[in-house]
C-alpha cells in the first residue's frame, strides 16, 4: 500500500470507569511513548463517574509537554442538572481547547465557534454534514454504523477533518438506565460505582453462551473489537486521514504503534494483524459495518 504519512492517529475518550491512578498512568504512557497525534479527554458516558477524579491537570500538562493535541469530549446523554453542569464546565474550556460535542446541547453551546463533533451525533448524509460544518465543526468523528459507500460520499463533500474509529469496541447504545447497576441488582442512584469492576466492560452472553455485547454503565458496546487495519488504504483514498483508536485495558502504546507502523508502510497488513491478534489474545475482531454487513461480522478482505 501507499505510505500514509499524512494520516493522524487519535485516541478517543476513555469510555470505562477506571480510577484516577490508573487513568493517570495510562495517559502518562500515552504522552511519553505512543505515536498518537490527538488525545480526547473527558467523561462521555456518565456524569456520576466524575466524582473524586483528580487526574486531569497532571495529564493535560504531560500530554501538552509531549506535543499531543488535546480535545475535550462532552457527555453523550444530557438529562438532568448534574449532566448539564458537567457539560457546561467542558464547553467553558473553549476556545482554549477544541471541544467535542456528543449531544445537541453541546453543539448549541459551541455554535459558530470552532468545535469537534463526536460519533454520538447522528451524521448520515451530506446535508447534515454541511449543517454542522456551517455551524463551526472543523473535526467530525463519524458514527461507526456507516458503510464505506456513505463514508465515501461524505468524504467527497467534507470541508472538515473526518475521523473514523478503526480500533476498539463499538459504541452501540446509551440509556438513562444503568445496566451495570441492574446486573448487580442495584439502582442507578445507589450504583456503588460497580462499573469500575470491569475495566474493559462487562461481557454479555446469550443463553447459549454466544459472545453478544458489552455493558459499560449506561452504555452498551459491541462484544467484538472493531479493527479496520485492512481498510486503511481505502479510507485514505477517500480522503479520510484521521483514525480513532478507542482506549481499552490493553497495551494501547503497543496497539497504537502497530497502526502507526502500518500507516508508515513499515509492516505489511498480515504482519500488522498478526501482531495485533497476538497482543489482544482471544479477542474477536470485526469490520462488518464498513462492508455494509452486520457490525459484528468479520469480512475477509484479501
Amino acid at each position: 500500500m501507499d505510505v500514509m504519512n499524512n494520516a493522524k492517529l487519535s485516541l478517543g475518550p476513555l469510555l470505562f470507569n477506571w480510577d484516577s491512578d490508573k487513568i493517570r498512568d495510562f495517559y502518562f504512557a500515552i504522552a511519553d511513548e505512543a505515536p498518537i497525534d490527538y488525545v480526547y479527554l473527558g467523561e462521555v458516558v456518565c456524569a456520576k463517574r466524575l466524582a473524586g477524579k483528580n487526574y486531569l491537570p497532571e495529564v493535560v500538562e504531560r500530554l501538552d509537554n509531549a506535543g499531543k493535541k488535546i480535545i475535550f469530549s462532552g457527555l453523550m446523554l444530557v438529562l438532568d442538572n448534574r449532566d448539564m453542569t458537567a457539560l457546561e464546565s467542558v464547553a467553558a474550556m473553549a476556545p482554549e481547547y477544541l471541544i467535542e460535542a456528543n449531544d445537541m446541547s453541546a453543539v448549541s453551546m459551541l455554535w459558530q465557534q470552532n468545535h469537534a463533533i463526536g460519533p454520538f451525533i447522528n451524521i448520515y448524509n451530506e446535508a447534515t454534514l454541511k449543517y454542522y460544518e456551517d455551524g463551526g465543526a472543523t473535526r467530525i468523528s463519524l458514527p461507526p454504523e456507516l458503510p464505506a459507500k456513505s463514508l465515501r460520499a461524505l468524504a467527497k463533500v467534507a470541508r472538515s477533518e473526518l475521523e473514523v474509529q478503526i480500533f476498539g469496541r463499538l459504541p452501540l447504545a446509551i440509556s438513562s438506565r444503568c445496566y451495570h447497576a441492574r446486573a448487580h441488582k442495584l439502582h442507578k442512584d445507589g450504583c456503588q460505582y460497580v462499573c469500575e469492576k470491569d475495566p474493559d466492560g462487562m461481557t454479555v452472553d446469550t443463553m447459549d453462551g454466544q459472545k453478544f455485547l458489552t455493558i459499560n454503565g449506561l452504555q452498551t458496546l459491541s462484544y467484538s473489537y472493531c479493527n479496520l487495519m485492512a481498510e486503511l488504504p481505502e479510507l485514505g483514498q477517500m480522503g479520510i486521514q484521521n483514525f480513532r483508536l478507542s482506549p481499552h485495558d490493553v497495551d494501547m502504546v503497543k496497539v497504537s504503534r502497530i497502526y502507526r507502523n502500518r500507516l508508515d508502510g513499515k509492516i505489511d497488513l498480515e504482519e500488522a494483524n498478526d501482531i495485533l491478534e497476538a497482543e489482544m489474545f482471544a479477542t474477536r475482531f470485526s469490520n462488518g459495518y464498513y462492508h455494509d454487513e452486520p457490525g459484528q461480522k468479520q469480512v475477509e478482505t484479501s
Partner: peptide, 16 residues
C-alpha cells in the same frame, strides 16, 4: 425502547 431512541445501533450490529 430502554435505550435513548435514535442513538442505538444494536440491531444493525447483529442484523445489519
Amino acid at each position: 425502547c430502554p435505550m435513548a431512541e435514535g442513538r442505538c445501533s444494536m440491531s444493525s450490529y447483529i442484523t445489519g
